[in-house]
Design a protein around this nucleic acid. Structure first.
Lengths: 211, 211
DNA sequence: CTGACCCTAACGAACGTTAAGTAAGGTGAG
DNA sequence: CTCACCTTACTTAACGTTCGTTAGGGTCAG
């Protein structure tokens, strides 16, 4: 009997990527050996070289594989109508849920930001992040014509992601509450901050405080 | 004659740390070998073991060494009087300058956030970040009593740091301007956003727009 | 038979770490 | 003063392990 679910997956190549992603996310490129990946998949090291020319190519494919799904999710989070503020709040909420639901994606992104060489970052920028980035920038232009839209777009994403980035550290700092880890709380906080900064009138469809 | 500046440094131990920090910042723990560090210092690998029991201890000492100076800088950035908004703006400006001036610190911090195990993060939290964190949280409480001060404190720091984190990626995305890399621009953007969200009246000593 | 798929076994290189030895400098006894 | 002795600070050389990668062969469907 086989140890893995190769047959149930699309194919072996996809299975290798699926198994490699959490490993690379957890300990990074140099922290994962071909042996580790082979063990996770349940095949020999040499078998991996049947699908990928070397470790670098496997890593790149894994990162692309992990990011493409998410980029599609971001695109959807940006779709739809409403005022700029409404679209901002919808994006923040969905993007937060997206980030919360996939720690591997978050870790890989963090690692690429700090570790990625020019080639890889250029590839990620051109092939994956370009479209959603421009969409967020367009939203930012609508939200605050007097602010730099590129920096604002970056801040919107950063307000969400940085919450997750610092979570393992903040767990050891005072004032920690369980709700700080919940996507709802994070999205609400980021939304509130942004809406206060960018629009006087906030859209609160799910019940509002009296004030 | 000696190849390094051991005598000019406080001592060899400090020299090893000084040389190791940029290496660890650039390629991470597993990306740097004891041979690399020894070569950078100009001594043999074995000599390092005279000062540090193993690689882990050297890495931990390097991280602590790199962070202690910065924490002192953050403390100073938070000192001084004025209104809460004024203190916020001063902190953002100085913290941005601090982060901009030391890419190694930024990289090491990013790496620890994504890579640091529980032990190391707990140590960093208790021994280094506790005091400045509480100070920023206290400031956040003043700024917006109705918001979660811990999340707000995190957002203040994140608005600055995330700009630097994404810089290597944004270099390959459209809309890139040289001023996006300048600390003045980053600080101004974060300040503007925060002041708009947290206080109606912004303190703008260097000339204000009409509006 | 062919080609896709996968194995075992091994390659050389690099890894963290240690053993053993040495040059330099101080210290105390004679 | 000098010689033996110890410690400090380092060296070279090697330890065993793990690394990425490959050679060579086996199996099985078409």
């Amino acid at each position: 009997m086989s140890v893995n679910q190769a047959a149930t997956d699309v194919d072996r190549r996809a299975c290798i990527l699926t198994q490699a992603i959490p490993l690379f996310a957890a300990t990074g490129y140099s922290g994962v050996s071909m042996r580790d990946i082979a063990r996770a998949v349940g095949i020999s090291k040499a078998a991996i070289y049947h699908y990928f020319p070397d470790k670098q190519a496997l890593y790149l494919a894994a990162v692309e594989h992990a990011f493409t799904d998410k980029v599609e999710g971001i695109r959807r989070a940006l779709a739809g109508g409403g005022t700029a503020i409404e679209r901002l709040e919808r994006f923040v909420e969905r993007f937060t849920a997206l980030a919360a639901g996939d720690p591997d994606f978050r870790a890989l992104l963090q690692r690429e930001l700090v570790d990625g060489d020019e080639t890889r970052l250029k590839l990620l920028a051109d092939q994956l992040f370009l479209e959603p980035y421009e969409a967020i920038v367009a939203l930012a232009k609508e939200l605050a014509p007097d602010l730099d839209p590129y920096l604002l777009a970056n801040s919107v994403v950063g307000l969400v992601l940085f919450c997750f980035e610092t979570l393992p550290l903040r767990r050891h700092l005072p004032g920690r509450k369980p709700e700080h880890e919940k996507p709802k709380t994070i999205a609400k906080h980021a939304s509130t901050l942004l809406v206060r900064a960018l629009g006087v009138e906030a859209a609160e469809p799910d019940g509002g405080r009296s004030g």
